[in-house]
Design a protein around this nucleic acid. Structure first.
Lengths: 331, 331
DNA sequence: AGACCGGGTGTTATCGATAACATTCCCGTT
DNA sequence: AACGGGAATGTTATCGATAACACCCGGTCT
């Protein structure tokens, strides 16, 4: 930096001002400094800046199991958005969202003096661990508890589940079964709620809830059970991988989709269109979620009294071929 | 830090020594300092440390499209390994590995003064862009060009492809068709090579190569073509998603797997066991790759003349139900 | 004309750590 | 008893940026 200042014939402070777009620098000086910066291929030392300002250009992300399609998409989308805003993203993935694991990850981020934190806090049990996050650190939760008092960005799981359930009822099914994700995930809870509400409003009987983790393996297990029950003609699953497992279980017992059983998934993974048959599912706009989270975070960093502290992104039903009318015998 | 020093009744330098495990500190003093650190809940400022040492505790990762199963797994595994070693990981994902995009991402990492860089450089075209990385920065490539002169960790794609092809030939098929990934990916190239070699060694005819991107969509397209050709009885695909698309295309034309056509995939995504039928595939040990990459990187950072600069991780064939003997008519 | 103001710039202090050097202390040697 | 040497500790300089303040200068107001 001193070199740049010398080359441009100004003080290092003026260079700093140019770097930070301070208003009180003459156009001509500014150009000279910029030229010097370019010529020397100078790049400011973020560590030094972070030291004096107390703020880095790093945003920490805490996520669980980022190999699932949702979290992985969220992460890349967020990284892209952050990069555009000049921030780097430091990831901290954890296997479980229990108190000690979260503390450790949050601590690591705190060590790095992250400027803000994004937590993909999709389980209720994480709440207490998350309470430890210093209150002066900008934080945004994704899929978190709206009642936490911190800014939250969520996909409207209830609406997505309603659309899916509605779609099945509209096709003429008497009721809809639901295979949910782990019940401690907010996502799961919302989807269960939307499903149940819709059935109740339609005066349909609410069948017992089957819950699983997010894997095809558990979907298969649930599917084996459902396949044996002739009264099951419509199933809504909490994600596409579960749907895949169910598809296979149904197929093994000779129950055809959508002829005998209709099925709707959630997520719209890229492969969903190539399941047998192509899966009708609910797509979440991860990009929108990521951008909303970033903008909320930047708002907090700038100390703006955030206009909104709870952004809800609507999902969209993608209709393919896994839903049909029930057989006359069943309807 | 000053507070800690005062509380422990020592100088800040001694605190620093304790922090960095310097040998010349009396046990008793060390304990007093540690106690003070704990009591004040003090955490060192990494920015200050980075400023004076010129090295951060951050490792940058450059990856393309991290929503694919492979890259996503790699990223999480690497993050875990790095965390255990006390490093944070900053991700920079890019859509394309062309020169300008890579430069931008690498620059961002350089700005952050990363201590090292891991590049998941799976396409040949990335080579020239990667040449720009300053040679004094520790770098490890994953799936990169072994001829690049930089340390590389790869999965033995050739061996994986050989195992898959061999498995199909052993089942009695006259030859094996291959649907590859994009030919500019090193992964694809290795799998093509292994496939071709194995056929040639077995004296089997080498059918024309079909290449696609990694998506189920293109697998489906290739599958539509293959399904129409009765002489096709065995297919090896470059990943599981392609296999899914092919599975559907075959199913649509009534060609049963494994009865009429045998199929082997690559990756062993968690869902592969729930395809119809369960997919025989090749599993890559992403965890091993990630740990090897980290250890190579740490070796470089410590300035050790790395014992190995090219680690090859073997893949493993996972046999399920998508491979069978060819029909007598075809054999 | 002199006081005042604000844009443009330079000077000095500061952030929190480590590096380099200085110092003290204790011990074993001769 | 004096001395050398290494272990343990303290002092000061330093990294590269921004913050706070000082300063100069030209124009406006009274």
């Amino acid at each position: 930096m001193t070199d740049v200042a010398r080359l441009a014939g100004v003080s290092h402070q003026t260079v700093s001002r140019v770097l930070n777009d301070h208003p009180n620098v003459k156009e001509q000086t500014r150009n000279r400094v910029r030229a010097a910066i370019a010529e020397l291929n100078y790049r400011p030392n973020r560590a030094a800046r972070a030291l004096v300002t107390g703020r880095s250009q790093l945003i920490g992300v805490v996520a669980r199991n980022s190999t699932l399609y949702g979290p992985a998409s969220m992460l890349t989308e967020f990284e892209q958005a952050a990069a555009d805003a000049g921030f780097a993203v430091s990831v901290g993935s954890v296997r479980e969202l229990d108190r000690s694991t979260i503390s450790a990850v949050v601590d690591r981020h705190l060590d790095q003096r992250v400027a803000g934190l994004v937590v993909i806090a999709n389980v209720a049990s994480a709440a207490e661990a998350l309470a430890e996050i210093p209150s002066d650190l900008p934080v945004v939760f994704i899929d978190g508890d709206p009642a936490s008092g911190r800014p939250v960005v969520t996909v409207d799981q209830v609406a997505g589940a309603r659309a899916a359930t509605r779609h099945l009822l509209d096709a003429g099914h008497e009721t809809v079964w639901h295979v949910s994700g782990p019940t401690d995930w907010f996502d799961s809870a919302g989807r269960i709620q939307g499903w149940r509400q819709t059935l109740e409003e339609a005066g349909a009987e609410v069948p017992p809830l089957l819950s699983a983790d997010w894997s095809a393996a558990e979907g298969y297990r649930a599917g084996q059970m459902l396949a044996r029950m002739p009264e099951v003609t419509a199933i809504f699953t909490a994600n596409d991988h579960l749907a895949l497992g169910i598809l296979r279980a149904l197929w093994e017992r000779g129950r055809r989709v959508p002829h005998d059983v209709s099925l709707v998934g959630f997520d719209d993974v890229p492969e969903a269109a190539f399941f047998i048959p192509p899966l009708t599912t609910v797509r979440q706009a991860f990009g929108d979620v990521a951008r909303a989270a970033l903008s909320l975070l930047l708002g907090q960093m700038r100390d703006e009294p955030g206009t909104a502290d709870h952004v809800v992104v609507p999902p969209r039903l993608v209709v393919r071929e896994s839903v049909g009318r029930p057989l006359p015998s069943a309807g």
